[in-house]
Simulated scan of single mutants.
Amino acid sequence: MPEHTDGGHRAHSAYDTYERLISLLESSRVDHRLIDHEPEGSTEAVSALRGHPASEAAKCLVLRVKVDRRTTRHVLAVVPGDRRVDLDAVRALFDARYVGFSDAETAERLARAVPGTVLPFSFDPGLEVVADPDVVARPRLYFNAARLDRSLLLSGADYERLAKPRIERIAAPAQV
């Protein structure tokens, strides 16, 4: 699928992002497994399809971090699938005035994937990855591979080595 331009930004297809991920894994010789399943983007539902607890999934959310009036950063927060992102912890981490979820268009442009398929990796210099320590500590880490119908399994240690995320406590218990 060809790239196209959109408002001056290079837009990437999910296929390009998937191919880039696979290329990274293969060139790094990281032990991983691809899992095909019915198309699903919800962490809980896709975890059930893959046959593992949601705690072994990487939930990936693009956040808008307003540091001050003129400075906005974008952060890819990666937390265990059975938890939620602690926005106050992220705000404190960046000494920011405001932290919230990015709008869908911005998230899709920066993550180079549609919602429900966002990787715990960033292929955009404008998107900083922050992962909770419980993510990289997982012996098995599952996430959608930039596609709704295919997931990836690798170790948290290999994920940390490849993605090089900033490791910070950003997960909170899921709200009931």
Rank of each mutant, 00 (worst) to 15 (best):
M1Q: 07
H9M: 00
H9Y: 05
R10L: 12
A11G: 00
H12F: 14
S13F: 02
A14I: 00
Y15K: 09
Y15Q: 13
D16K: 07
T17D: 07
T17Q: 09
Y18C: 04
Y18V: 04
Y18P: 02
Y18A: 02
E19P: 03
E19K: 15
R20F: 04
R20Q: 15
R20I: 06
I22E: 03
I22T: 03
L24G: 01
S27P: 01
D31W: 01
H32R: 14
I35H: 13
I35D: 06
E38L: 15
P39Q: 07
P39G: 06
S42G: 03
S42L: 13
T43H: 06
T43C: 11
T43Y: 02
T43P: 06
V46E: 10
A48K: 15
A48C: 03
P53A: 09
P53L: 10
A54N: 05
A54E: 10
A54K: 07
S55Y: 02
E56C: 08
E56N: 09
A57S: 15
A58Q: 08
K59E: 10
C60G: 08
R64V: 05
V65N: 03
V65E: 03
K66D: 12
V67M: 07
D68G: 07
D68T: 11
D68W: 04
R69M: 06
R69G: 15
R69Q: 11
R70G: 06
T72I: 14
T72C: 07
R73I: 02
R73L: 13
H74F: 15
A77E: 14
A77L: 14
V78T: 10
V78H: 10
V79E: 09
V79N: 12
P80L: 06
G81P: 11
R83S: 14
V85G: 03
D86W: 04
A89C: 05
V90D: 01
A92S: 15
A92P: 04
A92Q: 15
L93W: 04
F94M: 01
R97T: 13
Y98H: 15
Y98F: 11
Y98S: 12
V99P: 06
G100C: 01
F101P: 01
S102R: 06
S102E: 10
S102V: 08
T106E: 10
A107S: 11
R109Y: 08
L110W: 08
A111S: 12
A111F: 02
P115M: 09
P115I: 07
T117G: 13
T117S: 15
L119P: 13
P120Q: 10
P120D: 12
F123Y: 07
P125A: 06
G126N: 14
L127Y: 08
V129A: 11
A131Q: 04
P133A: 14
P133F: 12
D134L: 15
V135I: 12
A137V: 01
R140G: 04
R140K: 12
L141T: 06
Y142R: 11
Y142E: 13
F143P: 05
N144E: 11
N144D: 09
N144F: 07
A145D: 11
L148K: 09
D149G: 09
D149V: 08
R150G: 01
R150S: 03
L152P: 01
L152N: 02
L153P: 01
L153G: 02
L154Q: 09
S155M: 05
D158R: 03
Y159L: 11
E160Q: 12
K164N: 09
K164H: 12
I167P: 00
E168N: 04
P173H: 14
P173L: 11
Q175E: 13
Q175S: 13
V176N: 03
